[in-house]
């Protein structure tokens, strides 16, 4: 995997102005040097915050994402509690400095929707019925955004939930595919997402073959849509291996420190 270097602002603007057909060259190479079915470089760390019950840090290309999990704990406000299971309270939030133009720290409508769909992507994996009347809080902070942050947020949130010791049926791992420059491509970065034809984020519980998040916007034929879903699922499976490594390496290093 190639390392993507941070481009100066002028060059980034030039990239954003490029038309969709220029996103992938004749040899099938993308603006950042990747092939169509290649993920961006990924780095995952588990247990990075001392106060949170569970935490994870993830970098995927220029995305930098920090997740903290608290709970299960008493649900506040009380009326959100459910008698027969725990509830997940999820907040997806972008830092004001995470994008080119400063973003207001108040939650946007997009943040509200993403918090909801991310919660629904994580819920099927957690044994919520073990902790009735409690709340599990998942805080996802996007420190830097470069396309595909909801997916990267889910991948990191699953690691943080596991790190918190919350019993789960499976990990959840997410990855997007889409169409850019006329081709179906994996893990779109910001420019490809904005200029490209479509984006299809997918979340998967890999051992249960259960798809827990599926969205799409843009324009795809039914066949293209199915091809994008399959490519995204392939990306999920690769990321799942890295997720397992990240969890293991935390406990291996804990063992060595004894």
């Amino acid at each position: 995997m190639k390392v993507t270097k941070k481009k100066p602002k002028k060059e980034r603007e030039k990239m954003a102005n490029k038309k969709s057909e220029k996103l992938i060259d004749k040899k099938g190479i993308r603006l950042d040097g990747r092939k169509v079915d290649e993920l961006r470089p990924v780095k995952m760390d588990v247990g990075v915050l001392s106060n949170a019950d569970g935490s994870a840090y993830l970098e995927q290309g220029r995305n930098k994402i920090l997740v903290g999990v608290y709970g299960p704990k008493e649900a506040h406000p009380r009326h959100i509690a459910k008698q027969d299971r725990a509830v997940i309270q999820c907040r997806y939030h972008m830092a004001p400095f995470s994008v080119d133009e400063r973003k207001s720290p108040a939650p946007s409508r997009r943040d509200v929707e993403l918090s909801k769909v991310i919660r629904e992507a994580l819920e099927p994996a957690v044994f919520l019925e073990y902790y009735p009347r409690t709340s599990i809080q998942v805080y996802i902070e996007i420190l830097q955004a470069d396309g595909g942050t909801r997916c990267a947020g889910i991948t990191a949130a699953a690691l943080a939930l596991a790190d918190a010791g919350i019993p789960m049926r499976d990990l959840v791992v997410a990855c997007a595919a889409g169409k850019a420059g006329g081709k179906i491509a994996l893990d779109l970065m910001d420019t490809e997402d904005k200029v490209g034809e479509a984006d299809v984020p997918v979340a998967l519980m890999p051992n249960l073959n259960a798809i827990t998040l599926l969205q799409m916007d843009g324009n795809l034929s039914v066949d293209e849509f199915n091809a994008a879903v399959d490519m995204a699922l392939g990306g999920c499976k690769k990321l799942y291996e890295l997720q397992k490594e990240a969890l293991k390496s935390k406990y291996v290093s804990a063992e060595e420190a004894k």
């Binding site: 819920e123 599926l214 799409m216 034929s221």
Partner: peptide, 11 residues
């Protein structure tokens, strides 16, 4: 052609 997809609704 498909122009939007949304999965939702529960666990």
């Amino acid at each position: 052609n498909i122009c939007a997809v949304q999965k939702g609704g529960g666990s």
